[in-house]
Structures are given as structure tokens and as C-alpha cells.
Design a binder for these strands. Sequence first.
DNA 1: CGTCTTTGACCAGCGC
DNA 2: GCGCTGGTCAAAGACG
Length: 324
Amino acid sequence: MEYNNLIDTSLSLTSTPYKDLLDHMEQEMQSNKDGIESKIRPKTEQVNDLVEELNSANVENQRLTEMLAVMSQNYNVLTNQMKEYVTKTDKTDINIGSRKRKSYQNITTNHLNNCDINNSIGGSSSGDEENFSCKKAKGDFSKANISRVCVRTQTSDTRLIVNDGYQWRKYGQKMTRDNPCPRAYFICSFAPSCPVKKKVQRSNEDQSMLVAIYEGEHNHPQSSNVEGKQSSSRSVTACSTSSCSSKKTAMTLDPTEPISQENEVKYSNKKEVNSHELQQFLVDQMALSLTRDASFRESIAKAISSGRLLISKLVINNTPSIPL
DNA sequence: CGTCTTTGACCAGCGC
DNA sequence: GCGCTGGTCAAAGACG
């Protein structure tokens, strides 16, 4: 009996009214499916676009990483070369100094703190300024307080005068072996008993640079207010450590040595100059090489325009020892 | 006339 | 000892 009922129900479902209902439901489902698909498709396309963009960003990041790795490698190589060069030139200077005036070499060694001349001129192979204050200093070198000052002047100005606030009398001028410019000898004329002497010569490498070597210590106050007497003196633009000649930037100066306010001579310790300048030089070189690289500029522009700069920045920040 | 600069001579140290 | 080089002296000239 129950079986008969089931058969009747099954037959009745395939009868016309129910069949129509089923067809209608199928159509409804199909249309819903189409509607959902049509709505999903743009999202899928967007996701695909994003994935594609992400992939291209990854590729670009990879390329930038490789570039930075190369740059980092070059940076390290340059750093090593620079260190090697500095070491070599220091040794060369000592050797040059030992070629002549043997006694002075010893003196220089013994008074390296005060007289860093021979070494501080770093890189000067001329040997002229290395022997800048050799002979006379020998006798009373232990008393001598030697300092060196670089001053930038007009190249056309042939006068070897450094206005440092003191009054000087020129007592000699000599041509030196390795420098086409003569060397002038000055003695402090403010006080007759003042033992301070000054030697001034143009830098062999940078003719606009005047190198003044001071020997001794003034036993009188600064005469910077005595104007007019030094009619031949003039204000000069002192060189900063970075604007000096690349190799001869090092200069030492006794802190007690007065410097005129108008000159604003800047000076610093050799080691500071070396490390800071070296770093700055390398940074400049890297920045220069980067900005010269058309593909790098293009990549950066692309990254900026597409808003992916943060990604690139992350890559850069993760790159070791790249000063940016 | 006093002061400063110029310049040739002289001296001393150093390497060969 | 000689020659080279750097440092100093001093006479002469320039300048204000």
C-alpha cells in the first residue's frame, strides 16, 4: 500500500504542473548564477590585476635589490681603495720627509700632536710643504708650537698675505723646489720679543689656497684691532674642510692660535677630516652615480607615480651600509 | 723720514 | 767634499 502511494507521488511530480514549476526553478537558478558570475567577474579581474601589479612590483623590487647590492659592493670596494690610498699616501709622506732633513723627521715624529704638518698634508707628493718648517724648527722644536692654516684667496692675487689678526713683517721670500709659487717668511712685528714666525705659500695643487705655517707662540695679546697698519692685508675667505683640495684638506691648528673673526678660518683635526670627508665623498659619489643612472631614475619615477615608493624605500632601508 | 717689501747673498743641514 | 735645498740676513728700493 505504501509503495503504491510513493509511486503515485512520483508520477504526480512528473505531471505537467510540477514539471513547469521545476523548469521555472531551473531557469531561475541559471539566471541567478549568471547574475552572480557577472558580478564576480569584475572583482576577479581586479584581483588578477592586483596580482599582476604585485608581481611586477616584486620583479622591480628584485631588480632594485640587485642594483643596490651592486652599489653596496662598489661602495665597499671604493671604501677599501680609499683606505688603502690614504694609508699609502701617509707612508709616502713619511718617506718623502725622510729623504731630506733627517733630523726633522725625528722631530716631526716626536711632535706629531703639535706638528702634524708632514703627515697632515696627506697626499701631497710634492714634498714642498712637507719640509715647510723643517730647518729652523730643529733647534727649538720642543718649544715650537706649530700649526697650519689653509686660506682661500683669489688666484690672481699674488700677495702671500694671510690676515690673522697679528702684525707681521716679511723678512724673506724664496722659491722652493717643488712649488712654482714662492714661499714668504714673516716674523711677528707687533712685539719685538715675540718669537712667532709664519711661512706662507700657495698650495701646489690648488693655487687659490694659501697655506700658512705658524711657529711658536705669541707672548702678547692679539693685535686684530690694529687696523690700517696691515694695509696690505685683506679679508679672505677661509676654506672649509670640504672645499679644500681633496687630498690636502687636513690641517692642524693650535687651539691657542688666534684666528681673526673676519677670516673665520675653519680648521679641524686630520682624523675628523679624513673620516668625515671620506664618508661625504663616498655619499656624493654614490648619489651622483645613482642620479646618473637613467634606469634607476626611471624606476624611481615609476615607483613614485604608482605609489609604490614605500616598497622601494623598504628595500633600500633593508640594504646594509648604504648611506642615503 | 720711518716703515715695509724685495731680493740677492750667506749659512747650515743633508744626501751622495 | 760637493751640490742641493731651506731658512735667514741685510742692503736697497718703494711707499705713505
